[in-house]
Amino acid sequence: MRRRAYWRSFLIAVILLAASSFYYLPYYVTKPGMAKELEPIVDVEGGDKAEGSFMLTTVRMGRANIYSYLLAKWNKYMELYPEDMIRNEGETDQQYNVRQLHMMDDSKNSAIKVAYEKAGRPISFQYLGVYVLGVVEGMPASGVLQQGDEIVQVDNLEFKSSKEFIDYVGAKKAGDKIRLKYVRDEKKKQAVLTLKQFKDDPYKVGIGISLEDYKKPKMKPAVSVNSEQIGGPSAGLMFTLEIYNQLTAGDITKGYDIAGTGTMSEDGTVGPIGGIQQKIVAADRSGAEIFFAPNENGKKSSNYQDAMIAARDIETKMKIVPVDNVDDALEYLKGLKEHE
């Protein structure tokens, strides 16, 4: 009898433990991801191959359950973030992923522009329309447009920037109707929406979307970047260096395995990112010899300073190099001796 009660209690405990792993807390947990070689991802038509490699670094992130929450409290290279620090208000996980993938697309466009300009190659951009980043609940677009839709025409007018779209709609008044043509999942759609005042600004009317320009680069030679499901803008610097290396003669890696991180602005500025210490751990585990970190113009709490703290803690042999712009990285690479 006791034996049967013991096994019943044991079975109940196992079921409760298994069920609790699917109970998510209002937190996200992040930890070191991977360092991924870029040459198989980036392909410049007729581009040079490298002896070394440029690598992007990632952070793994997921919803926190009881166990990952407790583990993150103990592990210095796991971090917890409240939901509202990760997702926008009312944003689902799927919508968050769409936003992150769009940020990656913007990052790639900036990287391509900077790399081609530095290499002296021609590049221009074709404006495709307005990219819908989010939809405001209770406004006309709610229930009609979705995050990721591409608005290509308004009242049969085509625009050259999202600003022109905003100016056109903003010049109308509440109650006016506009006809939209948009693309979703490569299918063309239409909708007629009635403009409405915004609650927080009664003098402003619109359909209730957050938006960005949607454009694609046109250049020679052609380049393709297959970033798959990697999201966010933090690989901008490393994409720039890989594209530039394939565009130009020689191999600027000099045979080294080089990781790094940082956003890329269209003027070549390298911006800060999140999870720098976790990326140092990921790069070290992948055998990187050099790591480029955003310097933020020497700010005391810069990504570079945080990277150095982690580098000393894990006793890595990687050389941590501070960069404020792409020229800093190129100048450093120029001064490298060939790998032995």
Score class of each variant (00 low, 15 high):
residue 1 M to G: 15
residue 3 R to G: 03
residue 5 A to E: 15
residue 6 Y to F: 14
residue 14 V to G: 03
residue 19 A to N: 07
residue 21 S to N: 13
residue 26 P to V: 02
residue 28 Y to N: 10
residue 30 T to F: 04
residue 30 T to W: 05
residue 32 P to V: 01
residue 35 A to R: 07
residue 39 E to G: 01
residue 40 P to M: 02
residue 41 I to C: 04
residue 43 D to P: 00
residue 43 D to A: 10
residue 44 V to K: 02
residue 50 A to Q: 11
residue 50 A to L: 13
residue 52 G to S: 11
residue 53 S to V: 02
residue 56 L to D: 10
residue 57 T to D: 12
residue 60 R to P: 00
residue 63 R to T: 11
residue 67 Y to H: 11
residue 71 L to M: 12
residue 73 K to W: 05
residue 82 P to M: 04
residue 85 M to S: 15
residue 87 R to V: 10
residue 90 G to M: 13
residue 93 D to I: 03
residue 94 Q to R: 14
residue 96 Y to I: 07
residue 99 R to F: 03
residue 103 M to N: 12
residue 108 K to C: 07
residue 109 N to L: 05
residue 110 S to N: 15
residue 112 I to K: 10
residue 114 V to R: 00
residue 117 E to H: 04
residue 120 G to K: 07
residue 122 P to L: 03
residue 124 S to N: 12
residue 131 Y to F: 14
residue 131 Y to N: 13
residue 132 V to P: 06
residue 132 V to F: 03
residue 133 L to A: 08
residue 142 S to L: 07
residue 144 V to I: 15
residue 144 V to N: 15
residue 149 D to Q: 02
residue 149 D to E: 08
residue 153 Q to S: 14
residue 153 Q to D: 09
residue 154 V to M: 09
residue 158 E to Q: 15
residue 161 S to R: 03
residue 163 K to H: 09
residue 168 Y to W: 04
residue 177 K to G: 11
residue 177 K to M: 11
residue 183 V to I: 13
residue 184 R to S: 03
residue 188 K to P: 14
residue 189 K to C: 05
residue 194 T to V: 14
residue 204 K to V: 05
residue 216 K to N: 13
residue 217 P to K: 09
residue 219 M to A: 15
residue 220 K to C: 01
residue 221 P to C: 07
residue 224 S to E: 14
residue 224 S to P: 01
residue 225 V to N: 11
residue 225 V to C: 05
residue 232 G to W: 02
residue 237 L to E: 03
residue 244 Y to T: 00
residue 245 N to Q: 04
residue 245 N to C: 02
residue 249 A to T: 07
residue 249 A to D: 15
residue 254 K to D: 04
residue 255 G to Y: 00
residue 255 G to T: 00
residue 257 D to Q: 10
residue 258 I to A: 08
residue 259 A to M: 04
residue 265 S to K: 06
residue 265 S to I: 00
residue 266 E to S: 06
residue 270 V to H: 02
residue 271 G to T: 01
residue 272 P to H: 08
residue 278 Q to A: 02
residue 285 R to W: 01
residue 289 E to T: 01
residue 292 F to P: 09
residue 292 F to Q: 11
residue 292 F to C: 06
residue 294 P to A: 05
residue 298 G to Y: 07
residue 300 K to Y: 11
residue 303 N to W: 08
residue 304 Y to T: 02
residue 306 D to H: 10
residue 307 A to D: 13
residue 311 A to M: 02
residue 314 I to Q: 09
residue 316 T to C: 08
residue 321 V to F: 03
residue 325 N to K: 08
residue 328 D to M: 03
residue 328 D to H: 04
residue 335 G to C: 01
residue 338 E to P: 07
residue 339 H to D: 08
